Amino acid sequence: MIEKLGDVPDGVIGVRASGTLTAQDYASVVDPLVDELTREGRRGRFLVEVAPDFRGLTPAALVQDVRDGVRAIRSFDGCAVVTDVAWIRRATAAAAAVLPYPLRTFRGHQRAAAQAWLVALPAGGNVTARLVPDSGVVVVEAAGALRVEDVQALAAVVDPWLDEHPDLPGLVVRAPHFPGWATLGALLRHLGFVGTHHRRVGRLAVVVGGRLAPQAAGLAGRIVHPQVRWFDPDDLDAAVAWAGSAATDDPATPRSG
Rank of each mutant, 00 (worst) to 15 (best):
S245M: 02
L219Q: 01
A220H: 01
P251H: 12
G44H: 00
A205S: 11
H109D: 13
W242D: 05
H198A: 13
A216N: 00
V228H: 11
F46A: 13
L188G: 04
V157F: 07
H177E: 14
A182L: 12
A247W: 01
D163F: 00
V30E: 10
P254L: 11
V173H: 02
R203Y: 07
A116L: 12
R174D: 00
T58N: 03
Y26R: 12
D232R: 12
F46Y: 15
G11L: 03
A246L: 08
L219W: 05
R200N: 07
E3V: 12
D53N: 15
Q64H: 13
V228Y: 09
P254C: 09
A143M: 01
G136V: 07
L236H: 03
I13R: 06
S256W: 11
G185Y: 03
G44K: 00
V201A: 03
L236K: 05
T253H: 13
R67E: 14
S256M: 07
V208C: 14
A186T: 08
V148I: 03
V139R: 06
V201W: 02
R67F: 09
D167P: 00
A91V: 13
P122Q: 07
D31C: 10
F106L: 13
G180Y: 10
R67A: 14
K4A: 11
S245H: 02
A96M: 05
P102A: 05
F76Q: 05
R147D: 06
P9W: 11
G56H: 08
P226A: 07
A97R: 14
E36P: 03
L21Y: 02
D150R: 08
R67D: 11
L168Y: 03
Y26V: 09
R130P: 01
V82I: 14
V82D: 13
W230M: 10
I2P: 02
V132Q: 12
V173T: 03
P251Y: 09
E36Q: 14
C79A: 15
V15C: 10
R147H: 07
R43C: 01
E49Y: 00
R222V: 08
T105I: 10
V34P: 13
V30N: 09
V15H: 09
R74M: 06
A113W: 05
G180F: 07
L171C: 06
E36D: 14
V29T: 14
E149A: 01
D232L: 08
A61Q: 06
P233V: 07
N126Y: 01
R42C: 00
C79P: 01
P52I: 10
P102W: 09
R45A: 05
G221R: 11
P176V: 10
L146Y: 09
L99V: 12
A239M: 07
D68A: 15
L62G: 13
C79F: 06
W161T: 07
V158N: 04
T105M: 06
S135V: 08
T128P: 04
T183M: 10
P9V: 10
R255P: 10
T253R: 15
D68W: 04
A217L: 03
A113R: 15
G124A: 12
G218Q: 15
D249S: 14
D68M: 15
V63W: 15
A23W: 02
G14A: 12
L5T: 06
G202P: 11
V8R: 05
L62C: 02
F231M: 05
A93Q: 11
M1I: 08
A94Y: 09
V63E: 13
R55I: 00
G144T: 08
V119R: 06
R107H: 12
Y101N: 03
A182M: 14
